[in-house]
Amino acid sequence: MDFRRIEIIFLVVFLSLDVFLLVSFHNSQQVISNSTTGVTSTLTDMRKRNITFGKLDKKAGQAYYLGAQQSNDLADNTSKLRNQEIEYNQTSYKLMSTLEEPISINSDNRKSKLDSFMKKESNILFGSEYTYSPQLSSSTQLVYAETGPLGVMYDKTGQLIFSVVNGKVVSYTQTYMKTLDILQEKQATKSEQDVVTNLYSSSEIPNNSKITYTNMAYTKLLEAKGSTIYIPVWFISIHNKDSKVDTVKKVNAFTGNILKTSSNGEDYSNE
Rank of each mutant, 00 (worst) to 15 (best):
S107F: 08
S107V: 07
S107I: 08
S107D: 11
S107R: 10
D108H: 07
D108M: 13
N109W: 12
N109P: 10
N109Q: 11
R110H: 14
R110A: 13
R110P: 09
R110N: 11
K111T: 13
K111W: 12
K111D: 10
K111M: 11
S112G: 03
S112F: 03
S112W: 01
K113I: 14
K113Q: 08
K113E: 07
L114D: 00
L114F: 01
L114H: 04
L114V: 02
L114A: 01
L114K: 01
D115S: 04
D115I: 08
D115F: 02
D115M: 05
D115T: 04
S116E: 15
S116M: 14
F117N: 02
F117T: 07
F117S: 03
F117D: 03
F117K: 12
M118R: 10
M118D: 01
K119Q: 14
K119C: 12
K119W: 15
K119A: 12
K119T: 14
K119I: 10
K119V: 15
K120P: 01
E121Y: 06
E121N: 15
E121P: 04
S122I: 06
S122N: 13
S122A: 12
S122M: 04
S122V: 09
S122P: 13
S122R: 08
S122D: 11
N123V: 08
N123I: 05
N123G: 11
I124H: 05
I124P: 06
I124Q: 03
I124D: 03
I124S: 06
I124T: 07
L125H: 00
L125Y: 02
L125M: 03
L125K: 03
L125W: 02
F126Q: 00
F126L: 00
F126H: 02
F126K: 01
F126M: 03
G127S: 09
G127P: 04
G127Y: 03
G127R: 02
G127I: 02
S128T: 05
S128D: 10
S128R: 04
S128E: 09
S128A: 08
S128P: 05
E129N: 15
E129Y: 12
E129H: 12
E129I: 13
E129L: 15
Y130I: 00
Y130E: 00
Y130S: 00
Y130D: 03
T131R: 15
T131A: 04
T131P: 08
T131S: 14
T131M: 11
T131E: 08
T131C: 11
Y132A: 13
Y132S: 15
Y132I: 08
S133C: 12
S133L: 14
S133D: 12
S133R: 00
S133E: 10
S133W: 09
S133T: 09
S133Y: 03
P134D: 06
P134C: 13
P134H: 12
P134M: 11
Q135K: 01
Q135R: 01
Q135Y: 01
Q135L: 11
L136H: 12
L136G: 11
